[in-house]
Amino acid sequence: MNTAVDGAAPRLHMAREFWAGVRAELPLIVGVFPFGLIYGVVAISSGMPASAAQAMSSIVFAGSAQFASAQLVAGGVPTLVLVMTIFILNLRHALYSASIAPYTKHLSTLWKAGLSYLLTDEAYAVTILNYEREGDNTYRHWFFLGAGLALWTFWQISTAAGIFLGTVIPADWSLDFAAALTFIAMTLPLLRDRASVAAAVAAGVVAVLAYPLPYKLGLVAAAFAGIVTGMLVEGKRR
């Protein structure tokens, strides 16, 4: 891996990165697929038209916001409340955007616009790990594209399956736990030093304590607690 210049054609590097991104995303897709199915079922039962339920998976493309929307549609809230809920639930993506930004700086506006659309929790998770590896970053936006498109494709398919089959995967399969386990597998390699361990523990504790906060703000509070803790620990050791 990461042989920067080995004489191979750029096209080969692009394809290699793209498919590496697809492969890295696959375990997450296993975890996400049942969510897409269940979202489709919930959206329909909330009274959302099938066309809107499906369109939401491509226009908003964010699981937690889509689940919340389905609930709010069932409750018949005003349009503005629904919009603000989607916005606040998705604020965490600004953190991902900031985290990815240094690596996408050299790309064209079209690439930036396209990759931003694909910047979900799951695509971010594998993409940032790839960017943070040692080695040549020239073609790693293709990895991002592969991971993002793979997730996008399966999210649309799982939503459609949920809408049209109207069935739920039996809860006792616990397939959604695969997503949590995948997050564990991705977090462990990041805990390289004392500061990042401190960041992870602080964020985890705050995430649990602040869970009751509305609009998933607990996750935002946790992220900030982790970042500040990590910086403090790092600062002390300098």
Binding site: E132, A207, L219
Partner: peptide
């Protein structure tokens, strides 16, 4: 610290 913080937060909640 964004990746370890956010990923760990999700894991703890899960």
């Amino acid at each position: 610290f964004v990746p370890p913080a956010v990923l760990s937060a999700i894991v703890f909640q899960e």
